[in-house]
Design a protein around this nucleic acid. Structure first.
Lengths: 171, 171
DNA sequence: GTCGAAACGCAATGATCCTTGCTTTAATCA
DNA sequence: TGATTAAAGCAAGGATCATTGCGTTTCGAC
């Protein structure tokens, strides 16, 4: 039931459907539109829910190569590859255009923050000088998202450059 | 006529109206909905047009204080103050949720790029070592937007920190 | 001044959506 | 097992939106 609704939304987003409404979602999910109207305030609320769920269940393991530079580079490449997938990009757009209050407490950024913390902690235990976690989020994650949203190039070379930049800050 | 439509859209966006449709826009602008249906393909197209117009007519002058650090700091503060205004933030969201093709050729980022170029050029003529223009966009503009979109704090201290970070890259 | 094209207003039509009262199914607990 | 509550289906209504044909206005060219 709930999973049918989620996959219905997921498919529609994946297809780039422009008309994502409760009746459309309901028909594909094999449920009655009334159910959706009663459970969610509006389509955006449901979209947010699905987007957050899709963007957080990553299962990616945090790189652990022995050097922060390599860890961050691998990490940035993974994220770059992930968010440039059309479906993910659309989810991102959906989240951005959604209401502010929910986005502010979004688990997506929390996941990134935790991953960054882990890599930084390991590096410090090895005695490396590291940038701060906020610096990593500001100067790696933010530019990646920015490039995706504005349809600029996001490739491995770009990911590498961002990592070099952020490490250059603390040298 | 056209200005009435633009201001109508501007007001609706400013008020945070959730349902921005052609009939609603038309009524406030004092025109017939048919006109809008005929001139624009859909509401998003019109929204984009207005958003781009609103976000590009800045009239801000590029800071010229004699040092790149101060120039960038002033610049970042201006942008921070600008994009945190609720109306601008909504315009940003509207643009992001719009179609990809148009966003990619968005004049907004071009304006920022030109402003950054000007400050960098002046600094180099003074003999300063400077970051590149892409670095400035990636590590000042992108984090600012990122913070706005995810409803994180964007204040003067944050702007200062970003500038310090980007300058630390080239020292 | 007249003609013609383009844009706008008007009105009617059809489609889609949103809401709501009522019924039916499903699940929980005594 | 039987009862109570919550959730889903059903159907009808009202509302808003999108589309289109036709008449009217406006503006520029001849």
């Amino acid at each position: 039931m709930l999973t049918a609704i989620y996959t219905s939304v997921g498919e529609l987003v994946g297809e780039g459907a422009d008309k994502i409404t409760f009746p459309v979602i309901a028909e594909r999910a094999g449920v009655n539109p009334t159910t959706l109207y009663r459970r969610w305030d509006d389509v955006n609320a449901l979209l947010e829910e699905v987007a957050v769920a899709a963007l957080t269940r990553d299962g990616e393991s945090v790189p652990n190569t022995g050097s922060l530079e390599q860890d961050l580079t691998e990490w940035a490449k993974i994220i770059a590859r992930d968010i440039t997938r059309p479906k993910r990009a659309r989810y991102l757009r959906a989240m951005v255009s959604a209401r502010v209050e929910i986005v502010s407490s979004c688990p997506v950024t929390e996941t990134r923050r935790e991953q960054a913390s882990k890599m930084v902690r390991r590096a410090r235990e090895r005695g490396e000088t590291t940038p701060t976690v906020p610096q990593i989020l500001d100067h790696i994650i933010a530019p990646l998202y920015h490039h995706v949203v504005f349809a600029l190039q996001v490739d491995h070379e770009y990911a590498r450059r961002l990592v070099r930049d952020v490490l250059a800050m603390v040298r």
